[in-house]
């Protein structure tokens, strides 16, 4: 049987504060399998972003282990972490994090910045993807002139121009109006249909309609929602 794309075992996370350590996650166990669309909801401050950053290998858990595609990733193995991050994980943020002064297509191509690549080929891919997301006309405009909804679609294109094994999105529609959110979610659905594994955090319960699995972040842990 194929190992899960992501396996968090007994993961705990606490932050040191002047008033002593604050425990945000405790003994979280999570297996995300290929082609799943996992939506995580929960109250503010419940640790969703913390969980995603551990899943995205941007932050180390205080306790427990993280395995990716069946391979354990010790937190001190910076090279292995970096390899998985750059090759197999796509990340999308509430604030898009585009390079404002670069063109849209360059922002998408930036996915390959730290990977060896053929520029012309990557550019072709990026343009095709922008076309698919309805952004073909904006390709050569600087990212700063785009609307929020367009920016988020550019960010998604950047995350998937190298098809990831795991696509992680933290409140991708948090800064968008309903119409833009719908277009963004349509992108996610299309990506999921193409076989990409998605892990998405949101406050918008209506997005659960897209999910194959719905988890709630409560009491420093994760629970399957109905």
């Amino acid at each position: 049987m194929t190992p899960p794309v992501l396996h968090l075992a007994n993961v705990g996370k606490s932050y040191p504060t002047p008033a002593g350590p604050v425990e945000v996650l405790r003994a979280v166990n999570l297996q995300v399998h290929a082609a799943e669309f996992v939506v995580i909801t929960g109250p503010s401050g419940s640790g969703k972003t913390t969980l995603l950053s551990i899943a995205g290998l941007l932050d180390a858990p205080s306790t427990g282990t993280v395995a990716f595609a069946g391979k354990a990733l010790p937190q001190n193995d910076e090279r292995a972490l970096r390899h998985v991050r750059s090759h197999h994980i796509g990340m999308i943020f509430q604030r898009f994090h585009l390079l404002e002064h670069r063109s849209v297509v360059e922002n998408v191509m930036f996915r390959y910045r730290y990977l060896p690549h053929d520029r012309a080929d990557v550019r072709r891919r990026a343009l095709a993807l922008l076309d698919e997301f309805g952004l073909a006309d904006t390709a050569d405009r600087p990212a700063r002139v785009l609307s929020a909804g367009e920016r988020q679609r550019v960010a998604i294109a950047r995350a998937v121009v190298l098809p990831p094994m795991l696509l992680i999105a933290d409140e991708p529609t948090g800064n968008l109006d309903a119409a833009s959110a719908d277009r963004v979610m349509a992108c996610f659905r299309s990506l999921h249909r193409q076989g990409i594994t998605v892990m998405l955090v949101t406050h918008n319960l209506s997005l659960c309609a897209y999910a194959t699995r719905h988890l709630r972040c409560v009491d420093r842990g994760l629970a399957e929602a109905a």
Binding site: T2, A34, A35, F68, A69, G70, K71, H83, V84, H87, H88, P163, M165, Q194, G195, I196, T197
Partner: peptide, 10 residues
């Protein structure tokens, strides 16, 4: 680590 091509569904 195996890429998406190891999974039939994708």
């Amino acid at each position: 680590i195996h890429g998406p091509h190891t999974s039939d569904s994708i």
